[in-house]
Amino acid sequence: MSESPATVPRPKRFYTEPEWLDVGEIRVAYRRKGSGEPTIFLHGAGATRMWLPFYEQMSASVDFVAPEHPGFGETEAPEWNFGFDDLVLHYRDFADTLGLSRFHLVGFSTGGWIAAAFAVFYPERLASLTLIAPAGVYVPGKPLTDLFAMPPERIATMLFSGREAAYLDYLPDGTNLDDIVHAYGELTTFAHLTWAPSHDPKLPRRLRGLRVRTLVVGAEDDWIVPNEHVDRYAELIPGARVVRIPGTGHGLLIQEPERAAAEIVSFIEGNAR
């Protein structure tokens, strides 16, 4: 699954050079900017290697840290088989290495699943938890869209709920071999983690006892993680609050970066360490 970072193609827009941190055997690419409440952001199954407008917005108010998961962006996958439990330990070590003993954790989509799993095992490390359109739970009759069973152009449609034409800049070049192979590699890591089951059957039971202040952010009409998943998380986590960003799909952080950042910053500042 691994390849040398030198061969990782760079998106034409929003690419920035990452900083590097050795976490165990993994050399992590991450981007960091801003000051204030330390906030670790866990990305979803794509849109890597970019400093997105949402990140910029966040960094205006908080110390925003955006690492790339093993097997995504410029962080190489380890040679061994790994799962969400390994990612939880990985991010514990990542925070330790950065010297962050207590921080805010924000996760989007698959990153939301990792963040929820992290909160279950290390609640004392978190000042707050924000789950944005999070995967990880099962809602009968409303399964996660099977992104493995569709061509890339269809994934783009699903991501922006039919309005992908406005966001082509954020998508990889579907005609470039390097981009296609890189996307295949990221999708491989995604499959490694989520092919079956596409959720964690143990997570609901574990979330019921969670004592971390939690915000769940949903889209208006999410074609990848159905809206009911947001409700399910809010129902499971004691005291969780829900906000929805109007006019958005699963790509809400790209579609409404200012609005999303404002909601999340306000929540983080309201739960300062």
Binding site: M1, E3, F148, V181, Y184, G185, L187, T188, F190, A191, H192, W195
Partner: peptide
């Protein structure tokens, strides 16, 4: 499907 081939083979 992703991972059915190594990245190099793909």
């Amino acid at each position: 499907p992703p991972g059915s081939m190594s990245k190099k083979s793909f």
